[in-house]
Design a protein around this nucleic acid. Sequence first.
DNA 1: AAACACGGAA
DNA 2: TCAAATCCGTGTTT
Length: 561
Amino acid sequence: MNDLKACIVQRDRTVLLECGHPGFEAAREKLNRFAELIKSPATFHTYRITPLSLWNAAALGYTSNEIADDLSSIAKWGVPAGLQQEIGELVSRYGKLKLQRYGDNGEALVLESTDRMILDEVLAVPAVASLQWTRLSPLEAKLHAAARGRLKQELMRHGYPVLDLAGYHEGQSLRLEWNSGIEGQEFALRSYQEDAVEAFEGVTGSGGSGVLVLPCGAGKTVIGLAALERQQCECLILTSNTTSVEQWIQELTNKTTLKSSEVGQYTGQKKEVKPVTVATYQILTHRRSKNDEFEHMKLFNERNWGLIIYDEVHLLPAPVFRATADIQATRRLGLTATLVREDGCEQDVFSLIGPKRYEMAWKELEADGWIAKVDCCEIRIPMDSDLREKYIYAEGKEKFRLAAENPAKTRIVMDLLNKHQSAGILVIGQYLDQLQAIAEAIGAPLISGKMPQQQRTALYASFKRGETPVLVVSKVANFAVDLPDASVAIEISGSFGSRQEEAQRLGRLLRPKSGDNQAYFYTLVSESSKEEEFAVRRQMFLIEQGYEYTIHSVKEARSGT
DNA sequence: AAACACGGAA
DNA sequence: TCAAATCCGTGTTT
């Protein structure tokens, strides 16, 4: 019995998961439903059950009983009594406050509670009390519909997520269908894409608001198109960069019956507002000068949008949250590979875009063959005595850079290139000097932000054909949507523990491979240095997704593999 | 018009 | 914590 229990569950809502344990996989899967990974050293992973992780679970339909059962099925020494209770209390908060429409004109809302004490308590919170309330009964209070977003945000901050049942306005209708493929080859959604869209639409099929979490390469754009096809309404699509804007437009016009005259681009170059409009986040947040207004936020109200799609929700900038608070009656679909934000605004995603409606673990897609298998390996490389000495006397931030630019890495890259004779190898790094040096040493072209777009495109194409087997790339790789997929990635340096960046880089390898469908991801780190710490942080998200990094230490500064 | 260069922003 | 990249607007050149 006990040999399947891989966890120690602690009173402070942290859970320690033993890595080598036979019950590891099963426990990880369960923990992912309602806990967040916060530390992942080699022997024990630490998870924390946070209010937000519980509410996201609750929104997916998990009950506190199911969570309690899951926990006790993995807890070696049982679940502390107080904790069981606390979880029950937290989970039950989701749904204790409900927001409903009041009257028929949509101008007012009513906040309802099953518990008078809770309603009294939240109405006493200053930021909530300052809204204009009319107490209708001990269990109901009325307010103006315009405050919907603000209210949800404030209540969430106070620890009470609201179940928003106030509904949506329909928006201008727009007819569109899937384009029928060649010779009756109907375009078909993959089964999980179908599931994701249905999760967004909800049981009533009336659509709603919320976030779908899917790995890179899972076809998030197609899911967005599907949501639009179901809703049949005018739609605003917000995304992170112009290449992505172009991609959306291409998919919209290729895969659906929408004509190019119905699809507009709203960016720095072109400001079209069409029945379907695709814009960058950046244009929305652009200001003439620092204290000016956001002049392009008016895009939210320029047409009667029935649906707003937020691509890459983890990058959504703060001012866009503020604008989103004002349009809570519009259906909202968030798409992302990770709910984790480096700025900690996960709560605002929950209250203003919506709760998580669907999540597919990366490993699950891998098992079904939709994405490649990836072997992740961290290689620890010693610093030679000169470098070590410099390192010891350096300041905090210099330390990181010295370790990251460890010249011994060049040798290891060469060894790895020898090992993988195949084409499709990316060397990815953070510092231009370092990348330059390595590019010269291995005789491969370096692509950085300085390189004109045309040259980049030419190199990407040559890489795709296999004529250029190895590319050295800087941070351009983080944004380049047109960079072809690779089968081996060697990360020689990375930014200060950005989990997203690591995920993005791994994402480059995920397109299914012919043959054994296997890809390789190496990350090179200087041994016993700050770089090691940050590598651990970077890897966390992927570990949560079920990837394991094997650690390989290099003995001498120059050694074979 | 389109291509390019620059500075500010986040 | 940094460095490097993007995007936007503006102004200049072809």
